[in-house]
């Protein structure tokens, strides 16, 4: 077998594989955006039904619904959220354990700065409490039918326990990261949203998601919508090293699209 065999084999990929990459038209983008929003709502509702957060609510408190979701904008002077509980920093001199990030072709060390440089946007998100809040999806659309998800304030919503509180868009993701790093929180890197609401490690902490997406638009939503059609990706936790540079310390293989599909089914 040689590289030409591989070249030919790729040329005979199934129609469904080849077709899945061709999503270009504005109408389709709009449709996909709406479908994605609908899928998020559906799955969010499924999470609610499965986890029955209201059964754990202290009497008289509303742990579900808009009251539980703080409104935050991408304002540089953002007030610390009382829900956010920064995790302790790793011990001085801690080094990344290669075992944590050695599979799936990600053998190399990558700092969060490097991740951020590659990323096209950063989403600052907070993992929900044990009680996933009601999904509140809010998108505006521009004239091309693309969802507007820039630095304007958007309504927070939850997705499998994520509260999206800020969205940063643009090629200067690393610069934005500088400010965020000073807040002493833990970070999570993922290409997509993947989170188990009952993953104890991720409970009630704040993370940064680096979205390595070519654009914040319908492709981004499409990829999120992919939870309905399967696939998987990597989820990493990133912490600081002794020089206060962030590094990947953990991978969460349990958080896969398959897992999410299980929820849906």
């Amino acid at each position: 077998m040689n590289n030409e065999d591989l070249f030919r084999a790729v040329g005979e990929a199934d129609d469904s594989v080849l077709n899945s990459t061709k999503i270009h038209t504005a109408n389709r983008k709009r449709l996909i955006a709406y479908l994605a929003a609908a899928a998020l709502l559906t799955v969010g509702a499924a999470v609610l039904i499965l986890t029955k957060p209201w059964e754990n609510s202290p009497k008289g408190e509303h742990s579900v619904g808009p009251q539980a979701i703080p409104m935050m904008c991408s304002d540089p002077g953002v007030t610390p959220d009382p829900f956010v509980k920064p995790i302790p920093l790793p011990e001085a001199g801690a080094t990344p354990n290669p075992e944590w990030y050695k599979d799936e072709g990600r053998k190399e060390y990558k700092s969060a700065y490097e991740l951020a440089e590659d990323a096209d946007c950063i989403i600052r998100a907070r993992i929900g409490e044990k009680t996933p809040a009601m999904v509140q999806t809010h998108f505006d659309f521009d004239n091309n039918g693309d969802p507007i998800l820039d630095e304007s304030c958007m309504k927070p919503r939850t997705l499998y326990g994520f509260y999206i509180v800020e969205i940063y868009k643009g090629g200067k993701a690393a610069e934005k990261l500088d400010r965020l790093l000073t807040e002493g929180v833990a970070y999570l890197q993922t290409d997509f949203y993947l989170c188990s609401p009952d993953a104890p490690k991720l409970d009630c902490e704040e993370y940064i998601l680096f979205l390595h997406k070519p654009e914040i638009g319908s492709d981004w939503l499409w990829d999120n919508c992919a939870i309905a059609i399967g696939g998987r990706d990597d989820v990493f936790e990133v912490r600081y090293d002794e020089k206060e540079k962030p590094y990947i310390v953990g991978r969460f293989p349990e958080m896969t699209f398959e897992w999410l599909r299980g929820l849906e089914n």
Partner: peptide, 13 residues
């Protein structure tokens, strides 16, 4: 190759 391409993310694919 087909199976692999189904496994990877849409962006990678």
């Amino acid at each position: 190759v087909n199976a692999f391409l189904r496994r990877v993310s849409q962006r990678e694919r």
